[in-house]
Design a protein around this nucleic acid. Structure first.
Lengths: 206, 206
DNA sequence: TCCTTAATGGGATGACAGTTCCGTTAAAAT
DNA sequence: ATTTTAACGGAACTGTCATCCCATTAAGGA
């Protein structure tokens, strides 16, 4: 009785198992770029990866399982946050990093796929939330440091500032589906910074 | 040779045709609330609407076609924007309106479904973009009026202000998938307004 | 009211996604 | 080198979704 077991591949993760995993992840991204989440099928992924489809079903269970794994993998490739010594430059680095991810063919397609999957799959939703909350927490440090340096008002909520930087970019990507440009990134930084300097990100209850 | 024709139902739109359409739209929303876009099937929708599935295929063609029609319908139910005479109250009205839509069971499910569909269907993407660009343009007026009253700096980009109000709310809904609260709406207004007053939404080239 | 035909709906058909069975391959331990 | 068994993969099977055919119903015009 082998239902899709997430434990498959944990006892003998070397050699073949690792190669299969790599091939499937690669094929999944390729399929996402070409057909989007809606057009993703286990069958196609298996064929493209040169792997038995039984294996794909056993280890990932569903399309949502595939993109969830992909997202988890991305979460572990933590890009260390910048620390240039000035908030504005740090936040610009953050915005440009997000912009780069969104506009990168493979990464962008992956994000959109997971976002789509998360609207009706709890597992995907969890992976998505975990990924972003982690990223937000990491980058919040640059804001905290800025507060310590006196660049921003005391009590400024770092995580909220980081969210505010990304929000307009994702809004364009996912909601209004307009192209997201470097200008949008710059503007987001400028506006968020203006609000932060005015104390709009200071939390009342600590 | 009748491929899914969007022209079906245009010659005799009265009586039966209208009833079928209403029943199908209703059933589609119900299914979206229960199963999300991924779990939406033409078959189920037809059964739930008490309509032949041939009809659903003929008139809507695909799941994306169903949600696209739903979105187009919402676009035509234009909620007139507020005009309380003060920017802050107007923008708060906008934020709360968005919040209400997001947190409403049926509307929220519909938005998320269309967002999911739009990641891999160009038709859905177009309907989504049209819906929001129209809403943004309508609400941009309240900002333009505020500029004329001298509440905000001359040259402030109204559409961008409106986008900035919604962005954090949708970011939470779709990307980090956190609950979206009234506090989030209030904060978005306060922050956007702070940035706007500081002139961060003034466009350089008119 | 009657007529034309737009539009619907039941049911048959074909394709393909998802599942299961079981033999084969190759990690990892000895 | 040998053994054990985790993990893989070919192939057959099943259910559901998308499509098509054609009879039936009823909208809209005369």
């Amino acid at each position: 009785m082998d239902q899709p077991s997430r434990s498959a591949g944990t006892v003998r993760p070397g050699g073949r198992t690792a190669r299969v995993r790599a091939a499937v992840m690669e094929a999944t991204q390729d399929e996402l770029v070409e057909h989007g989440f809606h057009g993703l099928t286990m069958d196609q992924v298996a064929a493209r990866a040169g792997v038995g489809k039984t294996t794909v079903y056993r280890r990932w269970g569903s399309r949502a399982g595939l993109v969830t794994d992909l997202m988890t993998e991305l979460a572990n490739q933590s890009t260390p946050h910048a620390d240039t010594g000035g908030v504005e430059a740090d936040l610009r680095a953050n915005a440009l990093s997000v912009l780069g991810a969104i506009n990168d063919g493979r990464l962008g397609a992956t994000f959109q796929a997971v976002i789509a999957a998360a609207t009706s799959d709890e597992q995907a939703a969890g992976a998505l939330r975990a990924f972003y909350l982690r990223r937000i927490a990491e980058w919040a440090n640059v804001v905290d440091l800025a507060v310590k340096r006196g660049e921003l008002p005391a009590g400024t909520d770092g995580a909220e500032v980081i969210r505010a930087i990304s929000a307009p970019l994702y809004y364009r990507l996912v909601v209004t589906r307009e192209p997201v440009t470097e200008q949008d990134a710059e503007r987001s930084v400028a506006r968020t910074l203006a609000a932060a300097r005015a104390g709009a990100f200071v939390v009342e209850e600590p």
